[in-house]
């Protein structure tokens, strides 16, 4: 039976050990590397390329699994990558698809076992969830916010002004103000700071590191 070489990229030791054990206990996968930062993932691939990578998104050292995945896909397109995350950040799925990531798995929310996802991925299937986990934000759920509002909210969590948000998203500051007003009206939060903090706490939006 063919065994596939696995690289695990996960900053938390417990989660990393869990993945290691899952891989060790399987018959069709073997552990090649287990690293704690996405920043060095490409180095391992350049040296000895795995067949499949389990890649977390947000690392403690601020490295980004999606960026690392895009880089690896560029130089090693044959490698299968499965993004694993517990963050309900709505843009991760789109970014993963843009980066060429093969599969996407929510650690807490997905009922499907990770091994099943890995096997499907090695068979050439792309396994993506139908939607992001729904989180509550004030009086609404995350599905009640539009894509444009989420983009503005993401920049808002960085403490950006309306002008800075407008410059980043190529919209006018007036439009930014309108989106923020709409979100405040929907969620019932008192001000933009409260909105930003609550959204960040729920993991609904995660600002990109600069």
């Amino acid at each position: 039976m063919k065994t596939y070489k696995v690289m695990i990229v996960e900053d938390q030791a417990i989660a990393r050990r869990l993945f290691e054990m899952i891989v060790d206990n399987s018959d069709d996968f073997e552990l090649l590397y287990s690293v704690e930062s996405a920043s060095v993932a490409h180095m391992y691939c350049d040296r000895n390329c795995p067949d499949i990578i389990l890649m977390d998104v947000i690392m403690q050292d601020r490295s980004n699994g999606l960026e690392a995945a895009a880089r690896i896909k560029k130089s090693h397109p044959q490698v299968k990558i499965v993004i694993t995350t517990s963050m309900p950040e709505v843009s991760f799925i789109d970014k993963a698809k843009s980066a060429g990531v093969d599969s996407f798995w929510y650690k807490e929310a997905d009922s499907e076992e990770i091994l099943t996802v890995m096997r499907h991925t090695m068979e050439g299937k792309r396994v993506y969830p139908d939607s992001t986990p729904v989180v509550t934000l004030g009086n609404i759920t995350s599905t009640d916010l539009t894509a444009a509002e989420l983009d503005v909210l993401r920049e808002l969590t960085k403490g950006a002004s309306n002008v800075e948000i407008g410059d980043k998203l190529f919209i006018s500051p007036t439009t930014v103000r309108t989106h923020i007003s709409n979100m405040l009206a929907k969620t019932g939060f008192a001000n933009r700071t409260e909105l930003a903090i609550k959204a960040r706490l729920e993991g609904l939006v995660i600002p990109e590191s600069e």
Binding site: D11, A13, I14, R16, Y33, V35, S39, Q60, D61
Partner: peptide, 27 residues
């Protein structure tokens, strides 16, 4: 037991330590 062992590992890697470990791993 493995899970209990994993809790002892520090979850806060140093930038230099991470790179040096990776260098060591790949020879």
């Amino acid at each position: 037991i493995s899970m209990i062992d994993a809790q002892k590992i520090s979850d806060r890697p140093d930038d230099y330590a991470t790179v040096l470990k990776a260098a060591s791993d790949i020879g």
